[in-house]
Simulated scan of single mutants.
Amino acid sequence: MAELFATLSPQDWQAIRLTLKLCLYTTVILLLLGTPLAWWLSLSDSKLRTAIQAIVALPLVLPPTVLGFYLLLLLGPHGAVGSTLEQLGFNHLAFSFSGILIGSVVYSLPFTVQPLMDSFRRMGPRPLEVAATLGACKLDQLFSVVLPLCRGGFIIAATLTFAHTLGEFGVILMLGGSIPGETQVLSVLIYDHTEAMNYAQAQQLSLGLLVSAFVVLFIVYGLNRRNQREAVL
């Protein structure tokens, strides 16, 4: 493994740093946005619930290139968001880090929401009802009830989101292209190395992603097993 890192080029390290930055930002944003959404989906009886669930799950069935294409149309210079930003004196979001961050958040949304939904459903509303009768406010309920009881769900959601972002390719390539230091993440750089027939470098980076993916899945399955044991007890 030490030899692997020793042979990485500055371009490789730049892509690694950019990828980790994208993974971290995506995970934090989705935990902030996905938690209230998952809570509402797990407890709501609204007629809109099914439609919202379908929208959240769309990235699981849509080809990444399709999602990336529509985001490119939306965030590009001729799209509703991109053209509005340019009229306000800003740059459009296509082929930028902000653009691929938005794409990453949309594409990884179900990997945050689904584990949180499952965790909230297992907890149920009863613990919060008890906490409310004891005078706990909403913030107290969040930190003293929800976070401790659903800790495993949050860890799994964060881990899956980080890992899924690590291997994103289609959405990022469509929306961001391959701009070094801006949108050239590891998956895109591996493609570039392969296209240039630089197989040795592509293999090194691919091996790193393979090991990372295995570690993440090992953690997730281990946490799931522990959560199942705690639920039985």
Rank of each mutant, 00 (worst) to 15 (best):
E3T: 13
E3K: 10
L4W: 08
L4S: 11
F5V: 06
A6Y: 06
T7M: 07
S9F: 07
P10G: 14
P10V: 15
P10M: 13
Q11G: 15
D12Y: 00
W13N: 08
A15Y: 02
I16A: 09
R17I: 10
T19N: 01
T19W: 02
T19E: 02
T19C: 02
T19P: 01
L20N: 06
L20C: 07
L22M: 10
C23H: 03
C23G: 01
L24M: 12
L24P: 04
Y25A: 14
T26C: 12
T27G: 09
V28D: 10
I29T: 13
L30I: 04
L31P: 05
L33Q: 12
P36L: 09
L37R: 06
L41I: 13
S42A: 15
L43Y: 12
S46R: 08
K47I: 10
K47Y: 11
R49F: 03
T50L: 08
A51M: 14
A51I: 14
Q53H: 08
A54V: 15
A54K: 06
V56A: 01
V56F: 03
V56R: 02
A57R: 06
P64E: 09
P64Q: 12
V66W: 00
V66F: 02
L67R: 02
G68V: 15
G68I: 12
G68W: 07
L74F: 05
P77G: 08
G79K: 03
A80Q: 07
V81D: 11
T84N: 02
E86F: 00
N91I: 01
A94R: 04
F95K: 01
S96F: 09
S96Y: 05
G99M: 07
I102H: 00
S108A: 15
S108R: 07
L109D: 11
M123W: 06
L128R: 06
E129Q: 15
T133F: 02
L134C: 09
L134I: 13
G135V: 12
Q141P: 04
Q141D: 10
C150S: 15
C150D: 12
I155N: 03
I156M: 05
A157M: 11
A157R: 08
L160I: 13
T161K: 02
T161M: 09
F162K: 01
T165W: 01
G167A: 11
G170H: 05
L173Q: 07
L175N: 02
G176P: 11
G177D: 06
I179R: 09
E182C: 00
V185L: 00
V185M: 09
V185Y: 05
S187E: 04
I190W: 04
Y191A: 12
D192R: 11
T194W: 09
M197R: 15
A200P: 01
A202W: 11
Q203Y: 06
Q204C: 04
L205F: 08
L209A: 09
L209S: 05
V211F: 07
V216E: 05
L217H: 11
F218A: 14
V220P: 00
G222S: 10
L223V: 15
L223M: 12
R225Y: 12
Q228V: 03
Q228M: 02
R229L: 15
R229P: 00
L233C: 07
